[in-house]
Every structure is written in C-alpha cells, then in structure tokens.
Design a protein around this nucleic acid. Structure first.
Lengths: 201, 201
DNA sequence: GTTTTACCAATACGAACGTATTGGAAAAAG
DNA sequence: CTTTTTCCAATACGTTCGTATTGGTAAAAC
C-alpha cells in the first residue's frame, strides 16, 4: 500500500503520441525505417521516453497498429448522419468511400495496413485484426444490399453475397492506383458511384 | 584492348539465384529482414559474391523486383493454349485467376509486390513497374469484354470499362483473404467463375 | 610453362541498431 | 522540510549492419 504517490501522466496520450510518429514513418518509408531512435526523433521525444513506455520494439510496433485500428473504429462509431438514419444506399456509399485512401489520414491508414500485412502472416495477434474485420465488412455490405432489395431499390434477382464481393472488390482495388497517383480520389469515388447507379434501380 | 580474357560465368544466372533468395525472404519476413548476409545465407553463397554482383543493397533490391517482373512476363508470354486461340471468356478467366495467390509461386509474387509498394511511392523506377502495368491490364480486360460482346456472349448494354473495373476488383480483392488463409484459392476461383457465369449469357 | 584478370572468400571498419543501466528531476504525501 | 516513486534523459554495451579492402584461386590467352 503506497503511502507516497508521485505525479501520474496520461499514459495513453504518451503512447499514442509515439504511435502517431511511428505510423507516419511507416506510411512514408515502410517498416524497414522503424528504429527506436527514428521514432523518437519523429515524435520529438527522447529515446528514453519510448523505452519507458514500451518494453521493446515489437511491443511498440504492436501497439501502433492496434492504435490505428482503434482510430478507425472510433471514426466508424462516431459517424453521425445529419438527418436521422441513412438509407441503405447512403450507408453503402459511405462505407465504400471510407476505404479509399483519399485524404492524408486514410492514405496513412492504407499504407500502414499494407506495410504490416506480411507481419500478420506469422503473428496471430496482428492477424486477428484483419481476420476478424474482413468477414464483418462483407456481412455489412451484403446486409445493406439485402435491405435495399427489401425496400425495392435493388432488383430482387441480384445476389447480395455476390454484390457484396463486387462492391468490396471495386472499392478495395481503388487503393493502389489512388495511392500511386495513377487515379485521383475523385475518379475512384466516381467509379463507385457509377456502379451504385447501375445497381440501384 | 584486353589480350588475356579469363573465364566468364553466367552473370544473369548468378544474379537471378541471389534474387531468388531475396524474394523468398521478402515474402516470408518482409523487407525489414533483408540484409546482405541474410540473402547470402538463404542463397547458400558468400556475402562476397553478392558484393561482386551488386554495387550496393539498393541495387540488389531493385534487381530482385525487376527479376520478379521479368518472371511474370515470361509466364504470360509463354502461355500457350491447347487448342488454337482461346475464347475471350477463356482468356478472361485465365488472366483473372492468374492474379490470385493460389500457389507458392504466385503467393510469393503477391507478397513481394505488397512489400515493395511503399518503396514505389518515392522511387520512380519501381513506380514504373506498377504504373505501366496496371492500365494495360485494365485495357486488356475491357478489350476482352468488348470482344465477347461482339461475339454475342455478353449483353450489349454492359459497359466494358465498368466490367473491367469490376472483374479486376473482384480478382484483386481475393488476394488478402487467400494469403491470410481466410479463403482457399478454390473459393476465390469459384467467386470469379460465379460472376463470369452471370456476365456471360 | 607464364601472364593476366575475372571471380569471390575473408576480413576489417565505422555507423546504427536494440536494449540494459544509471542517475537525477520533480511532484505528491506526510 | 523529508520521503517516496514515477518519469525519463543519458550513457553504455554488445550485435548487426552496409560496404571498403585485401588477398588468393583458377581459367583463358600466349
């Protein structure tokens, strides 16, 4: 039972600031460029501070990707709609556009996801981030298609599962060309809108 | 003018053997795991040999991805069809299935492509590998759709450009789930066949 | 045989790495 | 004030890195 309790700082804020610096480096230079000293320099803190908050480099790398996952979930949870509930089409469009690396934030998330992918193969904890999320996304898309069908906005002979595959593939495949500057985010969004126009009656 | 010419080895074969080792490491452990010594060990040669054939690490990394690109092009060029020219549908199916990381070779190619992606952002030479190839692939898919339309096998109201987008997206989005073991190569192929069945009349 | 030089194994070297260790500042409780 | 403990800057240590350098081997030309 401690009698003397010294000051306490906000641990999560400290860790998150360090994770932010790490994610910036990963997105621009890849995982190869990550060193404790490089992250410290990017974050504007001492390497000692990083050692104080993370036992080793692996833990630091794991925290950063989980932090990014948390950031994305925050954004999805906090998404509010100006006028009540969105229609299935509005929700569908929002989800699909969300995956396009169109602004700095999403571009960083996309590149970090790519950079961590090979690590996921051998690391079950990292793998779970992808393996858990992907089927839920497919399910969400299929459900939205089904809802639009029931409302009569999509032809009843369309298969929701197949449409979910097509929609996800269409959105997902915009990533590389957009990130590489081969296609603008607006062009990518236009491709999705074009297909939505055909899908919805 | 050299009077004495000592023995010459097959330079390309030597470089390719080293590139093979590098690609194996990249696919299984990522670019972070690449060091001259690690590649030498994987290839079963001395580090001195690698130094002899590559001026520095960057040149080694550049050669390896160009070598992989060459391998892929070789396979595409050497593709022969058992009975004369393939139908557009057969060609379409072959191209789409080709992108799925279903066997060890394609799985390695897929993972290496992912690993190099961030490097492409800042490196024009690497960028060109992607930037040149992607539009040509879209064009090929759209042309095949158009040919099938002219043969009356696809409904004339389908837009070849949009169908090329959908087909590529569908095939491309199979990569992550297949590589992560979330979906079998057979399931990925089935998804493509299912859509082709709907596209073709 | 001698000579020449491509080939490459081995070693060396300085820089950068992950991390263990040390020491001190600073805030809260008594 | 003193005490306690968190926080972290600084330094040190052993390893690994990219690459420069050295030296020797062996095949081809003469």
């Amino acid at each position: 039972m401690p009698v003397h309790v010294p000051r306490q700082v906000d641990h999560k804020a400290r860790r998150d600031q360090i994770a932010e610096a790490l994610l910036d480096i990963v997105a621009s230079q890849g995982l190869e460029a990550i060193s404790v000293r490089a992250v410290a320099a990017q974050a504007g803190v001492s390497a000692g501070r990083i050692q104080h908050y993370f036992a080793n480099k692996d833990e630091l790398l794991a925290y950063a990707i989980e932090y990014q996952d948390w950031l994305v979930q925050q954004r999805w949870n906090e998404q509010t709609w100006p006028e009540g509930e969105p229609t299935p089409r509005e929700a569908l469009r929002w989800v699909l556009l969300e995956t396009i690396p169109g602004d700095d934030r999403r571009r960083r998330e996309w590149l970090v996801g790519v950079a961590y992918l090979i690590r996921m193969l051998a690391n079950p904890k990292l793998r779970a981030l992808y393996v858990d999320g992907l089927p839920r996304l497919y399910q969400l898309l299929a459900d939205l298609v089904r809802m639009a069908q029931e409302a009569g906005d999509i032809a009843p002979d369309r298969d929701p599962g197949m449409e979910a595959e097509l929609l996800f593939g269409l959105a997902d495949s915009q990533g590389p060309p957009v990130v590489l500057g081969l296609r603008s985010p607006e062009q990518a969004a236009a491709a999705i809108d074009y297909y939505l126009d055909h899908l919805f009656q």
